[in-house]
Amino acid sequence: MSAPRIGVLGLQGDVEEHLAMLRRLKADARTVKTAHDLAEVDGLIIPGGESTTVGAMLNRFGLTKPLIERVKEGMPVWGTCMGMIVMAEHVVGSSQPTLGLLNIDVKRNAFGRQVESAEVPLAISGLSGKPFPGVFIRAPWIESARDNAKIMASLDGKGVMVRQGNLLGTSFHPELTDDPRIHKLFIDLVERVAPETVAR
């Protein structure tokens, strides 16, 4: 049985941190920068970074279409912070381009500027054990979620984690912690969706 191949979108942001956590969990982790790289993976993480930077870059380098296609076929995708913004249907008060994968409206820098960035213990539905160490950096929140998009965790009464079928979004950065539980959750999701790959 081979390890699930999980890509981390490597245009900009905290790519290495995600790769390190995935490798710690024995996944076959790779950087994805082109449509060719994307075709080689069973799941994708869009890391933290700047959403205006990466949103524009996805279009300029022809990644938007193939990514949406793969998601339609059921490929799991998880976005952390910037990643969740890029995956959202709509960004409150902005016309910046997004992938429109998650049925949510997301508000950028919702908790404030950098001086409001904080570490906060979080209760996450379906995650047993101690609270999850939430690391929020100029973090967005989920203003509203529709249809099959389900809020999994909240802070200050606002959604900060969402699950929609095989798609995940978090306002916070599990890759900056030592807690592998959400990465494990994502790897499990990829293994369930792509059993033929993993059995190969």
Binding site: G48, E50, V115, E119, V135
Partner: peptide, 21 residues
């Protein structure tokens, strides 16, 4: 919920988000 602002992790963390940029 207790919020710990200005920790080393969130300060270094913002720089980590700027990587590759």
């Amino acid at each position: 919920t207790p919020k710990h602002k200005g920790t080393e992790k969130v300060k270094r963390g913002l720089a980590q988000m700027l990587k590759g940029g």
